[in-house]
Amino acid sequence: MKRRKLLYQIIKYFLVAVLIFFTIAPFLWVFITSISSLKDVTSIPLKWFPSEPNFKNYIKILSAGDGGNDIFSQFRISMYNSFVVAAIVTLVCLVFGSFGAYAFARLNFPFRDKIVVLFLFTQLIPGIAIMLPTYIIFKNLNLLDTKIALILIHTTFTLPFVIWVMRGFFKSIPKDLEDAALIDGTSRFGALFKVILPVSTPGLFATGVFAFLGSWNEFGMALILTSSSQAKTLPVAITEFLGRFTVDFGLMMSGGVLALLPPVLLSLIFQRFLLDGLTTGSIKG
């Protein structure tokens, strides 16, 4: 019996180790490539570790002068654009998404559940199917190559997701807490701000992290709606490390590592809220 239990533990930890390896391996390879020379990356047979590790690619990106026309200074501008767009999209979606989610979770009105399903259906539409009409609309509005266009389109994609997820969090909160506040004379808005939102703090943080990451990583719409450094975001800027006849893998991977840092740091900082939010939202949806 003890041998069987020991064997079970060995198999379990082995499978967990394999899963962790395949999860971390792509990110580890990105970092290894970023500190490798082009010769090491393109060598046959493949070298798993660089013969002369160096951080020159990071130095090129981070030490470039501000306001220049080179791809390195534009990379930093694109990182700033991505942060501004993602932060505004997250804030707008959390504010309006909370109001919408509260309405769908607590108020009774015709076709409530059908509208919620319609929100979920919008997430199933592939982005490439609406790229052309989206481009035409923003062109007619003279909003091409602006951060406003990205904020609007990212909000359009993210807001239904936020409403759907936050509705599950709000429904997991006992209605008795809200009823007690209403009996004491608090209005609906008062109950939302004084009872529902404070209790839903983990859910707000968890949803906000996912909304931020969704906007930060979006590539397709950013590619067709922007053309200059004044609005270009980080995923688009990374592709510019591609040359016409060659690909500088080291620079591209260095840009990828730098692009990974803000989301990773954000997840680590709000890890406790993220875990609490995910477990809370799974109780009742």
Rank of each mutant, 00 (worst) to 15 (best):
S228W: 05
G190S: 08
M253S: 13
P45N: 02
Y80W: 13
K12I: 15
E240N: 14
L62V: 06
G256W: 02
D113M: 08
P45I: 01
D40C: 02
L107I: 15
L251N: 07
K56E: 15
F212M: 10
G277D: 04
F99G: 02
F72H: 05
L258P: 03
L177I: 12
L124P: 03
A25R: 07
K232V: 05
I77Y: 05
P198W: 07
L268V: 10
G100A: 12
Q230T: 12
L258W: 07
W216E: 03
G281I: 04
F212S: 06
F241H: 04
W216Q: 03
A25Y: 11
W29A: 10
G243V: 11
L144P: 00
L118I: 13
N142V: 07
N69C: 02
F169Y: 14
I137C: 03
V236W: 07
N69E: 08
V84C: 02
F249W: 15
I196H: 01
S82R: 08
L91W: 08
K56T: 12
I196K: 00
T42K: 15
V18H: 02
I163R: 03
Q123R: 15
S215H: 06
D113W: 06
Y135K: 03
V92F: 10
F121I: 13
L251H: 03
L251Y: 02
M166I: 03
V236N: 04
G190H: 05
L223F: 11
L141I: 13
T122L: 06
V247K: 07
F75A: 00
G97C: 02
L223N: 09
S73I: 07
L234I: 13
I128D: 05
L118K: 06
N140Q: 15
M252K: 11
I24D: 05
I35C: 03
T158G: 05
P262F: 03
F75L: 01
I183F: 08
L265S: 07
F21I: 04
I71L: 14
R4W: 11
G127S: 09
A64R: 06
I59E: 14
A64M: 06
L38W: 10
M221V: 07
M1S: 12
S51F: 10
F212Y: 11
G65L: 12
T134I: 11
M253I: 10
I71R: 14
N81E: 03
T280D: 15
Q74V: 10
W216R: 04
V85I: 04
L192S: 04
G65T: 11
F21H: 02
L265K: 04
P263K: 14
T207R: 00
W164L: 09
V92R: 05
K60S: 12
G285E: 03
N57Q: 08
L19I: 10
I11N: 15
P235E: 06
I130R: 01
I148S: 15
F245T: 14
L182E: 15
D184T: 06
P262R: 02
K114W: 07
I32D: 05
G100F: 09
D248Y: 15
N140Y: 13
T226V: 00
V165A: 08
G255C: 09
Q123S: 12
M1Y: 14
L225K: 00
I269A: 11
V89E: 00
V89D: 00
P126G: 01
K175H: 11
Y58I: 01
T23A: 10
T246F: 15
L260K: 01
F273E: 13
K147W: 03
K171Q: 13
R76E: 09
I283R: 14
F157C: 10
L124E: 07
M221Y: 10
V84F: 06
I137W: 04
E178S: 01
S43M: 13
